[in-house]
Amino acid sequence: MHELEALLGRLKMEHLRYQVESLLEQAAKEELNYREFLCSALQTRMERPPSARDGVAA
């Protein structure tokens, strides 16, 4: 898991970095395939305001 968290940090996806464990658990419960999991994870990130997503001051 450490490698995944490090990669998310390098990709500037800190929000996902801190939620990845719960997203993985949810995907397992719902039996999501990889594509469905990835879409869900990216939607979680996109739900944040641009200033919070990109570190840009509003």
Rank of each mutant, 00 (worst) to 15 (best):
L23K: 08
R10H: 05
K29G: 01
M46T: 07
E14Q: 03
L11S: 04
L23H: 11
P50T: 10
E14T: 06
E36C: 11
Q19V: 05
L8K: 01
F37E: 04
L16T: 03
Y18Q: 13
T44D: 14
M13Y: 02
H15T: 07
F37W: 04
Y18D: 15
G9E: 00
V20I: 08
K12P: 00
M46C: 07
E47I: 15
H15I: 05
P49H: 02
E21V: 14
A58W: 11
E25K: 15
R17N: 06
P50Y: 04
L23D: 07
L16D: 04
L24R: 03
A58Y: 10
E5M: 12
K29T: 02
D54N: 00
S40H: 07
A57C: 11
K29H: 06
G55I: 15
L38Y: 08
R45P: 01
R10V: 08
Y18A: 14
K12Q: 02
F37D: 03
E3V: 09
R35W: 15
A27V: 01
D54L: 05
E30G: 05
A57M: 12
A52C: 01
E3T: 10
Q19L: 10
D54T: 02
L8N: 01
K29F: 10
E25S: 13
A58D: 05
L38S: 05
A52I: 01
L11K: 00
C39P: 00
G55T: 15
R48A: 12
A27W: 03
R10N: 07
H15W: 02
E30K: 07
G55V: 14
Q26G: 11
L24A: 06
Y18T: 15
L8I: 08
Y34C: 09
K29E: 05
G9T: 06
A57W: 11
Y18H: 12
R53K: 00
S51N: 12
Q26H: 11
A41Y: 02
E30S: 10
H2F: 06
S51Q: 12
L7M: 10
A28V: 06
L23N: 05
L11V: 00
Q26Y: 10
S22Q: 15
E14F: 00
A41M: 05
N33M: 11
E31G: 06
S22L: 14
Q19C: 05
F37K: 03
A6W: 06
H15L: 04
N33W: 10
R48L: 13
G9P: 02
E31T: 03
E3F: 09
E47Q: 15
L42H: 02
A27M: 03
E3R: 00
T44I: 13
S22P: 06
L42Y: 05
V20S: 01
A58Q: 09
P50F: 03
H2W: 05
E14G: 08
C39L: 14
A52Y: 04
E25D: 09
Y18M: 12
E31C: 04
L32V: 13
L23A: 07
E3H: 02
K12D: 00
L42G: 04
L38V: 07
Y34M: 12
C39R: 14
M13V: 01
R45W: 12
R45S: 09
L23Y: 11
M1V: 08
L11Y: 03
L7P: 04
M1Y: 08
E36W: 09
Q43R: 15
M1L: 13
S40V: 06
E25M: 15
A28K: 05
L11H: 01
L32T: 10
E21Q: 14
S22D: 08
M1W: 10
E31I: 02
Q43A: 13
R45Q: 13
P50W: 01
E47M: 15
